[in-house]
Design a protein around this nucleic acid. Structure first.
Lengths: 163, 163
DNA sequence: AAAGATTGACACGTCAATCTTA
DNA sequence: TAAGATTGACGTGTCAATCTTT
């Protein structure tokens, strides 16, 4: 049964449009002070969350579900901007530690204010606690299905040339 | 009160992760046959929905909430790939009509199968009808708040240099 | 001048190839 | 060889400047 109902389309359209607008708003919220991209912001936050304030490129990539090369390019640009620095790794000369600079930490802190306020304005103040919880629950449910589809790659994956 | 609760963070994290994975899955679903980017797919679908199968660049941009220049670049690439064509406009020599070519329509049709199946697998079969409706409702609610914030740009917008 | 649209410079992500150390 | 990471080419989006027609 491949038919999608009217109601399903309506829900999907709203969801789709909301995602677009929310991304816009959140990106904008990171433009105060030293303007950061969403990727830069998440990187700095990830570094801040870590016990010794440093991560290997690969760890960073795994933590965010990004490609290593993406992180490498990103880190390169951020280093040039003075937001992070690379420190050579004592135990493994192949890799390097990524650490936030003072300026990087400061930019992240400043950005966090705007970002949290945007989250508050666009999500948490708009939805009741129950609705927020429900959104989380639905997201988790979809996430589980998506992970399942990714590990058992027949779901939406390659489907050969039948008509 | 700017405090975000544990439950809110949990919900947000799930939502955020889900969005990332869903985007991945949907992008992948457009890679069958002539592989299309999400933007290309949406463009072709938008053209197909229109009464006379053609749209001005500006209309296209407005319909999707994209920048005119983005559409212009996109259209340029799609024209080079033979997916769409520009037709000069009789009543207004400044602009041009964008129409899908036969190959473009065929590619969109093929992509639509994969896309709808992915939607089915990742969303509509995962959520019950009630849950889908609820997702739509929550999305609409957020969307309304986002539009309000965009038209009355004080919500998350420029907030001057107070500490 | 304003509207329709394009262009070029630049920022970002992906993919495949590469380099270095383990 | 494999793992950590970088690099270059390329596709894509943004912003500001520009061109043409109204």
């Amino acid at each position: 049964m491949d038919t999608v109902t009217e109601e399903q389309w309506r829900a999907w359209d709203a969801f789709h449009a909301m995602r677009r607008q929310l991304d816009r708003a959140l990106d904008q919220s990171l433009q105060e002070g030293v303007s950061l991209s969403a990727a830069e912001y998440e990187t700095l936050i990830a570094l801040g969350r870590t016990p010794d304030r440093r991560l290997r490129v690969t760890e960073l990539a795994r933590a965010m579900g990004w490609e290593k090369s993406r992180v490498s390019h990103l880190i390169g640009r951020m280093e040039k901007r003075g937001l992070i620095a690379r420190r050579s790794c004592a135990t493994d000369a192949r890799g390097a530690w990524v650490v936030a600079t003072f300026d990087g930490r400061r930019a992240a802190l400043r950005a966090m204010r705007g970002h949290n306020r945007a989250l508050q304005d666009c999500v948490f103040e708009v939805l009741s606690d129950e609705e927020t919880a429900e959104l989380g629950r639905l997201s988790s449910k979809m996430l589980a299905a998506l992970d399942r589809a990714r590990t058992i790659p027949t779901e939406t994956g390659l489907r050969s040339e039948e008509q």
